[in-house]
Design a protein around this nucleic acid. Structure first.
Length: 423
RNA sequence: CGGGGCGUAGCGCAGCCCGGUAGCGCACCAGUUUUGGGAACUGGUGGUCGCAGGUUCAAAUCCUGUCGCCCCGACCA
């Protein structure tokens, strides 16, 4: 990609309504734009990173044996009335009417729809277990959307639902999902903690949240310095007033500390909560009908992107991990109008592209400062700088965004060096 | 929903108290000179001052209403 062709409206100044780093930097780097409170458009750069996260999620979900599907986002009210959630869910549920005044909602979550699919198309215990997931736009009419993609009303989520004939089978998949989530967030370059959590109004048990540690996180995590206990403060409070410095209620020995975190994933067991009321049953090997056991596993894709920025940025901009970076290398031409520089830049650009390395060529005829600032802001892991010294000495400068380290390389060594550092 | 704040050019803001030709910086367009960390000069484009009503000879400015956005709280896979 050539920068001159990339639609990437960067901002020199921080929009006044953006308070946290991820929101500010997504706006400034031209990744997203706001349409309404909690509702954003994704511009090319933002979408590209979103797709990278989705790709990691897909690979790991598929590897775990789950299968991808896509359900409708608009759901008839009947299904929600069947489980009682049409009345229980409250104002957070965006309700709509079609031309014939039939009631629908824009799905904030899909237990009803998936359970309906499964009850109509699964009869025997032999067809289970099964794990189905989708990556889809959700809408929750949050009381207070805030911090950009961190808590939006419209957002992209991966939601998975598993189906089993026994508790122990559900437990196996639950464990598998915990491992899968660990792989996903590790690949995305995130530091995270797994904590005990509340399953909220979705219902269920065995609830665990994946928390990316960040000062700006909306959740507080309690951790014991002695045993393995760690939990969202919300649950800890329900199980008997706990706060920082208190004795751990689990092991009775350690003391508790508080960290802040961003909830990027949540897994929990639904049991037969939905299958029972919606009569989703299968016949067991003795011919008896029993409700299907279910598990439910969510990942906020956009929130993961925001969390990655919260963990990887400095005063100049984003420092993407290699796995999420929109481009791995930015070739900066100090003077794009100079044909010699352009020629060298284009050659390296072509060579890197042949090696399947995603590279950006900043061919804009702007002063160098702007290009350096944009490269730092957008967070491309490596900058290759072509200037007069390149012409004079046949050397090129390679700068790491993360460490700031600068290497002077011979032109002939560029490709192999880049291949090495971007592995 | 309670409390607080803000809507003036694409972005950041001043002007409002005390009514009288709508401004500044950046961005954008043209030209010239520039090019290793957001260049310089010259010339230019762009705003029914969120919207509606009221007061007034006259409203960005005063009054009423309304919509939107942000923050704190309650809330929340």
């Amino acid at each position: 990609m050539k920068f001159s062709k990339l639609y990437c409206p960067t901002l020199k100044e921080t929009p006044k309504d953006a308070l946290v780093a991820s929101h500010q930097l997504m706006m400034r780097s031209g990744m997203i734009r706001k349409l309404a409170a909690g509702i954003y458009s994704y511009l090319p750069l933002g979408l590209k990173i979103m797709r990278k996260i989705e790709c990691i999620v897909r690979e790991e979900m598929n590897r775990s044996g789950a299968q991808e599907i896509l359900m409708p986002s608009v759901i008839p009210s009947e299904l929600w009335k069947e489980t009682g959630r049409w009345d229980l869910y409250g104002k957070e549920l965006l309700r709509l009417k079609d031309r014939a005044s039939r009631e629908f909602c824009y799905g904030p979550t899909h237990e009803e729809v998936i359970t309906d699919i499964v009850r109509n198309n699964i009869n025997s215990y032999k067809q289970l277990p099964m794990n189905l997931y989708q990556i889809q736009t959700k809408f929750r009419d949050e009381i207070r959307p805030r911090f950009g993609l961190m808590r939006g009303r419209e957002f992209i989520m991966k939601d998975a639902y598993s189906f089993h004939t026994s508790e122990s089978c559900l437990e196996d998949t639950f464990q598998e999902m915990e491992n899968t989530y660990g792989r996903i967030f590790s690949r995305a370059g995130l530091n995270f903690k797994i904590v005990e959590a509340d399953s909220g109004n979705i219902g269920g048990s065995g609830s665990r949240e994946f928390m990316v540690t960040a000062e700006s996180g909306e959740d507080a995590i309690l951790e014991c310095d002695h045993c393995q206990y760690s939990a969202n403060v919300e649950v800890a409070e329900k199980s008997g007033g706990t706060s920082e410095g208190d004795r751990c209620g689990r092991c009775k020995k350690g003391s508790l500390s508080i960290t802040r975190g961003i909830e990027v994933g949540h897994i929990f067991k639904l049991g037969d909560k939905y299958s029972k009321v919606m009569t989703a049953t299968v016949l067991d090997d003795k011919g008896n009908a029993s409700p299907i056991m279910m598990g439910c596993y969510g990942i906020g894709i956009g929130r993961t992107m925001a969390a990655a920025i919260e963990q990887h940025h400095d005063e100049r901009g984003i420092k993407w991990p290699l796995s999420l970076a929109p481009f791995l290398v930015d070739i900066i031409l100090i003077k794009a109008g100079n044909p010699e520089q352009m020629k060298i830049g284009e050659k390296i650009y072509e060579d890197l592209t042949k090696e399947n390395i995603d590279v950006l060529l900043d061919d804009r005829e702007l002063s160098p400062g702007i290009k350096f600032k944009d490269a730092d802001l957008i967070g491309i892991p490596f900058q290759l700088i072509i200037g007069n010294k390149t012409i004079e000495n046949q050397t090129i400068e390679l700068k790491s965004r993360k460490s700031g380290e600068v290497q002077i390389l011979n032109l002939s060594d560029i490709i192999s060096t880049i291949k090495g550092v971007t592995q």
